[in-house]
Structure formats: structure tokens, C-alpha cells
Amino acid sequence: MTRSPLQPVIAAIGEVLLGKERAVKLALACLLARGHLLIEDLPGVGKSTLAEALARSFGLGFKRVSFTSDLLPADLTGINVFESASASFRFHPGPLFSEVLLADEINRASPRTQSALLEAMAAGRVSVDGTSHPLPDPFLVIATQNGLDQGGTAPLPESQLDRFLMRLSLGFPERAAEQALLTGAGGHPDTIATGLGPADLRALQQQAAGQHCSAALVDYVLDLLARSRSSGMGGMPLSPRAGLALVAAARAWSLLEGRDHVLPDDVQAVLAPVCEHRLDGGQPRHEPGELSRELGRGVDGLR
């Protein structure tokens, strides 16, 4: 199999975020597919490191916002400030105007702020006082969410969960990786230097969108969608947007795998991250990935 052109990037991030190659690849796929990422995990497992490493590998700007219950939409988007020198309002962009935004504990903010963020994510632009400001072109939101059993949270509704391409959790590192971390073998995101820039990322995003999807593969995805909608399946039915997300993520994954076409394997690799949060409607099952697994098992994969 051909080597992925992105293998150096994966390796570079892997040096910073130890033992999490699969999560790194999925996050990269999300970036290549122009999607946004929702990470559901405990604090301290490396969410910001991942976000920062992703930003650094392509030379992108990175900001982090901790969502609290009193965070207002303007705190994200920025405001028009009156400047007496020019006697006019000037727009001071908020943290939303960075290429990679880490939205920490998104479920702690009020629904109003949440929807401002999600609308910005969907539209790619922000309107303040009637003026529309475009967001940067590679634009990735990595939102984190704490366990839903914690108090004072407003869980994201299903309709907004749908706007995240993938939901991941990093989980605890393996013993060997943690040992390396503790002995100081892990690097710092600042040290990442891949030599790639935003323009390269845009080119890669374009290439990912152009990966070949054969009729047989589309059939496979259609069967998956139909299966999720048939009776007897647990979970919510998958929407057409979920289908688009699945194909886009599988395309990005196939690019990461160094192929020019998408295989059912690519779909299966991204099936759980892309579909699980859509299937369970934001209420994770006891067994992680249970619904996507059931979905995948129900559709013939030998295409």
C-alpha cells in the first residue's frame, strides 16, 4: 500500500500526543473533510494538546475559549468598538476568528451561545450589527463536552450534535505511552514543524473532496443509511446530512490511507466516530460504539 502523504504530519503529532495515533488520524480526517470535532472526555487527557498540535502542523492560528454559563455570543464573535480617532465603529474580532478554535466544555454555556457558535460553524461567517464577516478558510472547531451526569450543563440537542462531523474520545493512554509521557519523552506542540501551511491544507481538503467514490461504495453507504432507518434497529435514523458526513469523512480517511479511491474499509473506519452520536442522539449507550457496530454488522461489507 502506498504511504500516505500525510504520514509525516501524523508522526509529528504523534510525538506530542503519545499513543493516540488513531484519534490523531480521525482528527486529521475531520480537518481534511472540513468538519468539526466533538470530543467527549475527561479533563487532562490531551484535548488542547491535540487541537494545538493540529493547528501547528499546518501553521494555523489557535485559540481556546472556556465556555461558561455566563459566556455571551459577543464574547465569541467579537464586537464593534467605537474609535474616537476615526469617529467610527471598528470590528474587533473575537476568538471565533482563528483557524482552530478549542471550545472547552461547550455544554456549560447557555443554549444561546451554543447556537451562535454552531451557526458560525455551519455558515462559515459571522454577522455582527448587520455586517457579515467571513471566518478564516481552514476553520476547525474542536468542542469538548464533559460527562452529561455533571451538574449545571445544557447538553447539546440532537440537531446541533448533527453539525459535528465526528465525535471522539481520546481515553487514557496506554501504559507504555503514559510512561513515555511521564519520563518527559513527549514534545510540546510548539516544536512541531512540518513545513506545511494553510494553503497546503486547503489543497489537501480539495484533494480529499475529490477522492473517487464508486457506485458500489455509494451503494454500501446507502445500504447503511437504509439499515439505520429500518425497523428493528436501535437508535435514531441517520439523516441525509449524516450520509454526506459519512462519505466526506471516508474520503478524507482514504486520502490519509494513501489511496485515490474510497473502500468500504474507509467507511467502516469512520463509521463509529461519524454515526454514533447521530444514532444515540447524544445519550451514549452503556457499550461504546454499540449502535454503529450493530449498524455495520447488518450491512454486507463484501461489496
Binding site: R167, P288, R293
Partner: peptide, 11 residues
């Protein structure tokens, strides 16, 4: 088993 090739998200 499937679980080994579709990586489940950790709890």
C-alpha cells in the same frame, strides 16, 4: 469480532 476493527469510543 467487529469490536476489534471498528474502534469504539472509550467510555
Amino acid at each position: 469480532p467487529w469490536s476489534s476493527w471498528i474502534e469504539p469510543p472509550p467510555p
